[in-house]
């Protein structure tokens, strides 16, 4: 590609641009085929089936009848006395952990982006919580929170930070919620950090060079270069993580299963309780889909924000 080509390219550019966009549609659809095939087979059917279940009185093993919004009405009237508690807890759990994961993830990514000794070891170490099979790490956390064997309390007591026996992590409603959040943040932060770290690698370095020449401080480069250019990745990660946290089941199920008395009850566990052990699969589906419209709106907004810069 010599300079000559580029010099007389200007008129061609305009002509071609129009044609290029004309031809984008077939390619665009073609590239989507593998994804749509897999999702169509393994996701669309279960998804539609789930929606259908939620408007029937189906029970496990018995195909039910259409009952309209009966299941949703059952919940919105808080008939079982637990639903609203679960909604509030779910929002609290998702909101608080997301804020912490976002903040800590950014800090972690910035740190990992620096040069320091044993960098490779440190990166691997900080990733460990995200790698370890969750069923096993949650059991370990449960044990660390167990009042009888809490090594956390042992440490706190022996460093004289608290008096014996230390906080009852999982037995008091507020503590139990905090414990759930701690474990979720512990596990989720590396996810943010790695995504942000990858995002930072895509930012052209000359921007920082230029900013430095212009006398910008580190903080100024961070707020006016890193954050804006990280925005697409940041929004996607935030969205994905919010949704995953919203539906988080395994951690809370292993750690508290909603106890003490439904004070850490989350929608995901509540849906499971009704749907699987209780056999009322229609009602369970309705509980897990009840916030679907709301989440959809959130997704739509983020999608819009993501598209906007073009």
């Amino acid at each position: 590609m010599g300079t000559a080509t580029r010099a007389d390219a200007v008129p061609v550019w305009h002509r071609r641009r129009v044609r290029i966009y004309d031809r984008e549609a077939p390619l665009g659809y073609l590239l989507l085929v593998p994804t749509l095939v897999i999702l169509g087979i393994f996701l669309l059917y279960p998804f539609l089936f789930g929606i259908w279940l939620s408007i029937t009185d189906s029970e496990l093993g018995n195909v039910g009848n259409f009952i309209g919004l009966g299941n949703y009405r059952f919940e919105f009237r808080n008939t079982d006395g637990v639903f609203y508690e679960a909604v509030v807890n779910t929002f609290l759990y998702t909101g608080v952990t997301t804020i912490f994961k976002l903040g800590l993830g950014l800090v972690m990514a910035l740190l990992l982006n620096q040069v320091f000794p044993f960098r490779r070891f440190v990166r691997a170490a900080l990733l460990l919580p995200y790698i370890i099979p969750t069923v096993l790490s949650y059991e370990a956390w449960r044990w660390m929170f167990d009042p009888t064997f809490s090594v956390i309390n042992w440490l706190l007591v022996n460093t004289h930070l608290v008096h014996y026996p230390g906080p009852n992590w999982l037995g008091v409603p507020a503590n139990a919620m905090a414990a759930l959040m701690i474990v979720n943040v512990w596990r989720g932060t590396p996810f943010y950090a790695i995504a942000f770290l990858a995002g930072m690698q895509v930012i052209p370095l000359d921007l920082y060079e230029a900013a430095r020449v212009d006398g910008a401080s580190r903080w100024q480069s961070f707020t006016s270069i890193t954050i804006p250019l990280l925005r697409p990745v940041l929004l996607v990660v935030l969205l994905l993580s919010t949704i995953l946290t919203f539906a988080d089941f395994q951690g809370p199920f292993v750690l508290t299963n909603g106890a003490p008395y439904n004070s850490t009850q989350l929608l995901s566990i509540w849906a499971y309780q009704w749907g699987i052990p209780g056999g009322a699969i229609g009602l369970g589906a309705a509980i897990s889909l009840v916030l679907f419209p709301l989440l959809t709106v959130v997704v739509a907004i983020v999608l819009f924000m993501l598209r906007r810069p073009e």
Partner: peptide, 14 residues
Amino acid sequence: FVTYLVPPTLLFLP
């Protein structure tokens, strides 16, 4: 993305 919003706790049945 929207298909993602259905929690796996029930999706596994269908």
